[in-house]
Design a binder for these strands. Structure first.
Lengths: 314, 314
DNA sequence: GCACAGCCTGCAAACCCTTGCAGCAAGTGT
DNA sequence: ACACTTGCTGCAAGGGTTTGCAGGCTGTGC
């Protein structure tokens, strides 16, 4: 059924070793031979079996990516970055959607372990114990989570929060709601930390609400609570929530940014599609997948704030 | 480094065969032995190497999914459906983003071929020749494309277009623009076919514009052209474009749905987040990944139209 | 004519598993 | 006591590839 290296060898009248070398170490085989081999391979439609190759080389040529929710634009953007970068280095990505569930997260990493060269763990919800147990199973890199001794790419969420707060403060806001995301989110905690640290200097009172699901619906739900607390600005966990907030506010006849300002996080493309102005703190997700220079060990990239509409109100 | 079946065998003082069987055919080994084996395996953190297993069984336990663009909510929804369903049957998915490029598409399928049990090809842009050559390499199922002899899950795009047209016609629209997506899109052609067939009966003049990129930007760009043609309704290739159209119309001060009605396709979640009313023809993408009954060979699922806001204007 | 280097090529082991077959012990029926 | 079944277990082959090692042939310098 599947055409193997053996049929190619037979077809080209050489040994399998030669065929193998023709592909992996081209300059070790005579030019004429190589040509012949490649031609036969082409005719037969031969494709090396990467699994078998991985068995002996120890390298699979695959990298695993696990995200809490592919349908979240933030993660699909990140995913796109990963697949693109993977392709450049002739790898292919193994995807797992952990459905926001820590147990699933651990499980899928286990399942991928042996067939990938490493896994990219996006914003893991998993507790440290599990995480440590996973290390050693397979090389790991964490996104947006700082765990002792583990390589990670981090976005400076705390500083992002500070930026957002200063921005709002400068616009005259004094009472600002923060809508928390999932409890175990490292980025969320960082943000809160940054918020608390910056609040006094900004002369701002922060109302901490949540946790809420990091989704459109979560935002809808949170908006009412925030309104009830009489704030003039809302800092949402991410853009998805922010859009939910925007929507709920519109439904309740609250004008943005006249009555209330809304700020999100992540700068997913979608946020530019809303009609009400949404300021967002940009997280350079796709870029984070780009080739190193500083990468390969713990490194961090910095957020920049952005206001799609004139920041008069954001 | 990696712990293999051999160390477990040694640790449990049995042969490798027994360890293997303890995992894959539990009732063939003595209960006590099995317990011991599993315990040792647990202690050592043994995880069977699925690649090696695949080598001998011929089943990899992986399924490949290739999409034109993960960042497109339509496809990420579909992807989510795939991963979820895959997990249920203890499979894991291999993802490739073809970046809307037919060449890449063919290439990645080749790369995945040997390490998956089959691949799900989403809305392939690839030409029939390439497609046929891929068959035989690995089992294939097409999404939203009908190719002779190939299993596919199809959404009835033509009928969706008809529904949309009738809807608009009933609302009194007589001059309607259709914004085409990528030229090679099967769904697009189907839609056009449905449109042309239905137009006379609906007493509607259709203005065919495009092709445009199936993106938010594509919609923005298309909106101006449509406006210039003086239509009262716009049928966009997908919701992403529709949202782009909505945005551009808002920017130009055109009221929706008062001045112009906009209809999209796919019913991605995002479309419920826009502030202007967007009618969309629903494509049951996630459901399409669900377990069979009719599945496993060519089957089709049917679209239903939906108006998030009262259809007075949509 | 000889020794030696250099270039290619083939052999076979190894990677980690599964599985058909055979072996062994204990249990059953006569 | 015997043959036979039943229930587990081990041996070894095999799956598709890579790679260290050894062997063959050509060509070079003397």
């Amino acid at each position: 059924m599947a055409v193997t290296i053996h049929e190619v060898a037979k077809g080209a009248d050489v040994s399998v070793s030669t065929v193998s070398r023709a592909f992996t170490m081209p300059d070790m085989v005579n030019a004429a031979t190589r040509r012949k081999v490649l031609q036969v391979a082409e005719e037969l439609g031969y494709q090396p079996n990467r699994a078998a190759r991985g068995l002996v080389t120890g390298k699979t040529g695959n990298i695993g990516v696990v995200v809490p929710d592919v349908a979240n634009p933030f993660f699909s953007a990140m995913l796109k970055g990963c697949t693109a970068r993977a392709r450049e280095v002739r790898h292919v990505v193994f995807l797992a959607d952990a459905a926001e569930d820590p147990r699933v997260e651990a499980e899928v990493v286990g399942a991928m372990a042996k067939q990938v060269d490493g896994v990219v763990l996006c914003s893991p919800r998993m507790d440290p114990d599990h995480l440590q147990r996973l290390v050693g199973t397979t090389p790991l890199v964490l996104i947006n989570r700082d765990e002792a001794g583990l390589p990670a790419v981090l976005m400076d969420s705390a500083d992002g929060a500070r930026q957002a707060l200063e921005h709002l403060s400068a616009l005259g806001h004094r009472r600002i709601a923060h809508l928390a995301g999932p409890p175990a989110s490292w980025a969320g905690e960082e943000r809160l930390r940054g918020l608390r640290a910056a609040a006094p200097a900004c002369d701002v009172e922060t109302i901490e609400l949540g946790p809420f699901p990091p989704t459109f619906q979560g935002g809808v739900q949170a908006a009412d609570l925030a309104l009830a607390r009489g704030v003039t600005a809302i800092l949402a966990f991410n853009d998805l929530m922010a859009v939910g907030v925007l929507n709920r506010l519109a439904a309740r006849g609250v004008a943005v940014p006249t009555d209330i300002s809304v700020v999100g996080f992540d700068d997913i493309e979608m946020s530019s599609m809303t009609t009400a102005p949404l300021t967002t703190v940009r997280m350079p997700m796709e870029a984070a997948a780009a080739p190193p220079s500083t990468c390969c060990s713990t490194g961090s990239t910095h957020p920049s704030s952005r206001a799609p509409t004139p920041p008069t109100g954001g």
